[in-house]
Design a binder for these strands. Structure first.
Length: 100
DNA sequence: GACTTGACGGAAT
DNA sequence: TATTCCGCCAAGT
């Protein structure tokens, strides 16, 4: 198994509920600074039944990286609302993640 | 083996 | 503050 991928998964699981994190942050935490795009591609390969909190990952603009019309967008937004990280209107409540 | 693509980031303008 | 542009690198074609 890819060591870097494991690090990314670990970083995802380390995101506290109610917190959001950017792709760049995840990449950095995984020991891959500047590989945000790779993280995005990795997440795109996750199965829909994955237990990983991929929905806590947004882009550096503090927005969901899906077209507002996509089912993925709605699914992610719903999860964020459930955790209090977003409003029903679609407004994202940016909570920057910081690790020790 | 070369070219394109992508759930991005960051600097430059 | 908002856009535009370029760099990055693994996968897919």
């Amino acid at each position: 198994m890819n060591q870097a991928a494991e690090q990314v998964y670990a970083a995802l699981l380390a995101i506290p509920a109610g917190r959001l994190c950017s792709y760049g942050d995840i990449a950095k935490l995984a020991g891959l600074p500047g590989r945000a795009r790779w993280v995005g591609r990795l997440l795109s390969q996750l199965p829909t039944n994955s237990q990983l909190p991929w929905f806590r990952v947004i882009n550096s603009q503090g927005k969901i990286s899906f077209p507002p019309a996509s089912s993925n967008y709605e699914r992610q937004l719903r999860e964020l609302i459930r955790e209090g990280s977003a409003e029903a209107s679609g407004k994202i409540l940016w909570r920057q993640c910081r690790w020790p």
